[in-house]
């Protein structure tokens, strides 16, 4: 079973929910936790352990100067500006390359071949006996987040139970993360911002047809508007985490409330049961 944890905006506590859920589940079963927030991965901070790195590469063009006639076709074809044909050379901007292979297709001289280039890595560790943590890390200045997400997901493939911590927002990385999941947990806060962004995230998940439910984080007990919205959209409330300085302080330290506060392990176990129910699959 595959579960994604997503939110329309950052900082709603998405990673915290993912980490607590994974930690709770690992008490009783094998679980893989995949950090798909590759621009700012931070799940490893909850589970410090030595990790094994696997580089993530994409293919970029390499031009054979002996064959290149500087005709300019590759530069004209590339929609991403990754090649600029000047009077005496072809200048390559590998970080702009989307690895579509178009330049090598259009080159009339066959002067372009594709070679791998590292854009990030996937870090794998086993911080708890039943927990495998797979973190995708995009290198600074790189733009191809979906490629790193795909690689991280691939590495976790085969585990019976996988949790994906999505990146915030509603753009392509989130779509990539949601690919192939059975259920989605949307984490929100009961503020006007939270609701505004939950609405966007719900739209994305709806468009994929994945069953979803909502976790309200930092609730001050006045969640009427969020509850109304969820009722309207048929989104079940899976869990409510209250706003408290105690919880905030534990989380800021990198602690997990399922470990450090009594009662929360049970609540995260209940959260999992609730997700299984909406997914309608056998975990």
């Amino acid at each position: 079973m595959k579960i994604a944890i997503a939110s329309g905006k950052g900082g709603t506590g998405k990673s915290t929910v993912a980490a607590n859920l994974a930690c709770t589940l690992a008490l009783s079963r094998e679980v893989a936790l995949v950090d798909c927030d590759v621009e700012e991965p931070n799940l490893h901070l909850f589970f410090p352990d030595s990790a094994e790195d696997v580089p993530v590469t994409t293919l970029v063009p390499e031009i054979d100067p002996a064959l290149c006639t500087l005709c300019g076709e590759c530069g004209k074809f590339c929609r991403f500006g990754a090649l600029s044909v000047l009077k005496d050379r072809v200048l390559l901007f590998p970080e702009l390359c989307h690895s579509c292979g178009g330049c090598s297709l259009v080159c009339p001289q066959g002067a372009i071949r594709e070679v791998p280039r590292t854009i990030g890595r996937v870090a794998c560790s086993c911080p708890l006996s039943r927990l495998t943590l797979v973190s995708g890390v995009l290198n600074e200045g790189e733009v191809m987040a979906p490629t790193v997400i795909r690689a991280a997901k691939m590495l976790a493939e085969g585990h019976p139970l996988i949790l994906y911590d999505a990146s915030p927002g509603i753009a392509c990385p989130v779509i990539e993360t949601l690919e192939g999941v059975d259920a989605c947990i949307l984490v929100t806060e009961s503020t006007p911002f939270g609701l505004h962004d939950l609405r966007l995230a719900a739209e994305v998940v709806e468009s994929t047809g994945i069953p979803a439910g909502v976790v309200i984080n930092r609730s001050d007990g006045r969640d009427e508007e969020t509850l109304d919205f969820c009722r309207e959209r048929g989104l079940p409330i899976l869990m409510t985490i209250p706003f408290s300085r105690e919880i905030a302080a534990i989380q800021n330290r990198g602690g997990l409330i399922c470990r450090d506060l009594p009662g929360w392990e049970e609540r995260f176990a209940d959260l999992f049961e609730a997700v299984v129910k909406i997914a309608g699959v056998n975990p």
């Binding site: 300019g72 530069g75 004209k76 590339c78 929609r79 991403f80 500006g81 990754a82 090649l83 600029s84 044909v85 000047l86 009077k87 200048l91 901007f93 702009l96």
Partner: peptide
């Protein structure tokens, strides 16, 4: 109105 990478592509036009 191109999506991205306009700088290097524009330079190629100047060079041409």
């Amino acid at each position: 109105d191109a999506a991205g990478g306009v700088g290097p592509r524009a330079v190629q036009m100047f060079s041409e």
